[in-house]
Amino acid sequence: MQLSTRHLLGIKDLTQEDISLILSTAEQFKEVLQRPVKKVPSLRDVTIVNLFYENSTRTRFSFELAEKRLSADTINFAASTSSAAKGETLLDTVRNILSMKVDMVVMRHSASGAPHFLSQHVPAAIINAGDGINEHPTQALLDAFSIKESTGGLEGKKIAIIGDIMHSRVAQSNVYLLNKMGAKVTVCGPPTLIPKYAAEAWGVEVNYNLKETLEWCDVANVLRIQLERQNQPLFSSLREYRISYGINRQLLDSLQKEIVIMHPGPINRGVELDSDVADSKQAIILQQVENGVAVRMAVLYLLSGRN
């Protein structure tokens, strides 16, 4: 079985079969990561460039580790320390890198659609590691893998995505994926941080009440406020946000059932999540990070065929 696409630009382009294939392959890679030698030789003849035009800790480390665990050769690019700072265009930078016989490009960019543009102009396989406010497909895949692992499946599961939905590429990719896999999705947050088109365009429920949303869901995927992407103030203060949408222990204890708490990181402790929630056994935040390596190994492996 093969993926239906040569690149991973977004969840929007994947079929249900593609998603299932990536998740089942990731299960085998998770087993590899438990071995004494956490490395396989699958990509020993493949060179990968990690092209990060935007800051990243988790995603960049996770991709780099996944590449090394697959025995690929890797080179790292950070926009701030490269010729991009001297005015070189994205296409010129990538063409120069590819002339050094690079096979795959992992790319993060602040412009939505940058990886799509690149995929039309260069022969290498492109993997989107986050583009502007569009998509972050590997995060949605690792979230799905983690949901499956902690609740036993995706179909029919009730997933709440809570926080800054408007500026979150994680939210958009999660919505696409969960819809494709038959989960039920509710987005929750202040009205100013939820796009007006959410219910109609995404086919999700919208609920502005946090308590009601938490009562309904099996899993709450909590997002941070993306202040760096907001051009104008969309809520009064972080204190007010915390009062209406912050999740604390008292709130979780008041629910009728125990729900799973997820967060893609970085967490703003004391804003969207209190420490006694983020560090509790209900939170699977560190499992998400661990699963991220296995899921990215699966994506790189499945896209590495040259045919």
């Binding site: 079985m1 093969q2 392959t25 087993e31 003849d45 492996y301 590495s304 065929g305």
Partner: peptide, 10 residues
Amino acid sequence: RKNILTPDRM
């Protein structure tokens, strides 16, 4: 490299 195969259980 000739064919990317789906892994079996280990």
